[in-house]
Structure formats: C-alpha cells, structure tokens
Amino acid sequence: MSLALPALSRRALAVWGRNFLVWRKLAVPSLLGNLADPMIYLFGLGYGLGGLLPQIGGVPYIAFLAAGTVCASTMNAASFEALYSAFARMHVQRTWEGIMNAPVSLDDVVAGECLWAATKATLSGAAILGVIALLGYVEGPLALWALPAIFLTGLAFAALGLIVTALAPSYDFFMYYFTLFITPMTLLCGVFFPVDQLPAAVQAVGAWLPLSHAVDLIRPLAFGRLPGNIAFHIGTLLATSLAAFWIATALVRRRLLK
C-alpha cells in the first residue's frame, strides 16, 4: 500500500462544488432533517431529565445538553456524509470513477469529499447552535468561535469516516462503526452528562476519543468562556484530521487504483 503523502490540487474544490450543488437542490429539507433529530433529543431529555437535575457547572441541564448536542450532531452529520453518501458516490454510482477520468486525481476526490462532509457537518452544527442561541442557551460573542471548532470537529469525523468507507464492502459494514465507535463516544465524551460521573478508567478512555476534545472546546465557547487547554484540543482534532485523511487516501488508492 502506498503511504505517499496526498498530492492535492485546487481541483478538489470542483468535487466539493459538485456535492454542494446537489445539496443546494434539497437544502431546506436537508437542514430541517438535520435539525429534527437532535432537537427531539434536546427537548425530550432537556425538559424530561432537566427538571430532576440540579444545575450542571452553573448552567441548567438543558443548556448543558444543548452544547453537547451541537457536538454530537456535528459528528453524526460528518459521519453520515463520509460513510453513506461518499460510499454511494464511490461504489454504487461510480461518480468518483467518472471524476477520475477528468484531470482530477483520486487524492483530490478524497479531499473534496472530506471538505464537503466537514462543510455539511458545519451547516448542521451551526443550525443547532443558531436554534439554541435563539432559545437563550448560548452566551456572548465568544460563542461565534464555536463555528471554527465545529468545522474542525466535522473535518476530523469526515476523515475518520472516509477510512471506514475505503474499507467497506457494503452499506451494512457501517453499522459496526456506529455501534462500536460513534455511539459509545456519544456516551463517554460528555455530551449528555459530565464525564466525571464515569469511573476513572472509563474517563481515561473517553479522554482519548476525538469527541471529547470537541466537547471540551465547543461547550465553554457556547457559554461565552475560553476553553481550558485550548491548543491541546485544537491540536488533537487537527492531528486526527490529518492522520485520518492520510490513511483514508492510502486506503482508497489501494481500493480504486489497482
């Protein structure tokens, strides 16, 4: 397997543009669809459990949960796009094959897909951030800095998802990724409750997972505070993005350029 560094060109943006144009045709239903699921959880759990709980870290439970929901939704949106949608374009529709007959390299295709999945995740995360801001669960101008943090989170999960796509024989394969990786992460990384409720050993595992870094960045920003260890969290998400993108590119090359 060739571990050569991805060689990228601006043609990757044409791949991004292709996906954007498809999305634009169905933008409103797509955004509403991305909002519905997290909002149901937010209000169901936020009001249902929130009444039973004292404040968490000085904020009402529903506000705590709202910031966590932004992170989880960003992760989910990036993952769905990089798994199911990218797989359809790679394997089912042969869209990538068509693109590669033009002067666009496979590395550019993977980069375009990765950027697109991160963009779509950002749209999704930002939409939720907007809604919870309207509801008054977001404070201060610092909250705007949550947007680049959301994009970075999207990038990391897009790249991780593309690794799975590169290995997937069929759509069924993605179930493993969701049940073994995405769902545990949602529970271990402080989306629904503070991680200090977990046993120390489990906390230690959770701290390694990329979603933890997203939560530790985005939740304080949403409350208008500067996150602690900010460089560490940004660095980890960035390193995850780059390493995962590199691996995904190598795996996709092995799959398609044989």
Binding site: A14, R18, V22, Q93, R94, T95, E97, I99, N101, A102
Partner: peptide
Amino acid sequence: VVPQFDNLDPDFTAAENLLIYGRYFA
C-alpha cells in the same frame, strides 16, 4: 473518456451533467 460502465451523475439533469463535468477541467 467514455467508460464501460455508466457513471453519469444521477443527481443531475443532462445539461447539469455536462456543466459539472466541465468544472473538473477547471
């Protein structure tokens, strides 16, 4: 290139397929 297996972009119309493909050539 006309490939052996159809890989037209099913998310677009006939004209959009040409437009999108031209973008890959910048």
